[in-house]
Amino acid sequence: MNAMDIAVGIFLALGCFFALTGAVGIVRMPDFFSRLHPAGKNDTLAVTSIMIALLIRTVEYDYHWTVATKLLLIVGIIFVTAPAASHAISKAAFLDGLKPWTKPGDTEASNE
């Protein structure tokens, strides 16, 4: 047990927490549009934080340097594609006429 192991543990735990938060959010949120928020955002940070943990492991196990660059590329790809995918899904749903859920009694929100 050294400092690197502890850092790996912290980042892995953080990543798992956010991945689980995204999953719970998709189950718990009341309508499609509010489900986009946990799905699109928490997964991004979950990937980032788990890849940081694996980056530390790469240094610890002395892997080839392409392992580190591939981890960074995975983060880059998720950062570009996650918002684009959630935008594409939400746009299709919006054009299909799906009405967003508003809080009961929230008159300002339902004006739109």
Binding site: F17, K41, P100, D106
Partner: peptide, 26 residues
């Protein structure tokens, strides 16, 4: 900003009373 937003959304997901008031704005 992404890190801040994640903590904000995570709080709203786990909060027992789900403190959200969604709306569409332009």
């Amino acid at each position: 900003q992404i890190v801040l937003s994640n903590f904000d959304v995570a709080m709203r997901v786990w909060h027992p009373s789900r403190p959200i008031a969604p709306r569409i704005i332009r």
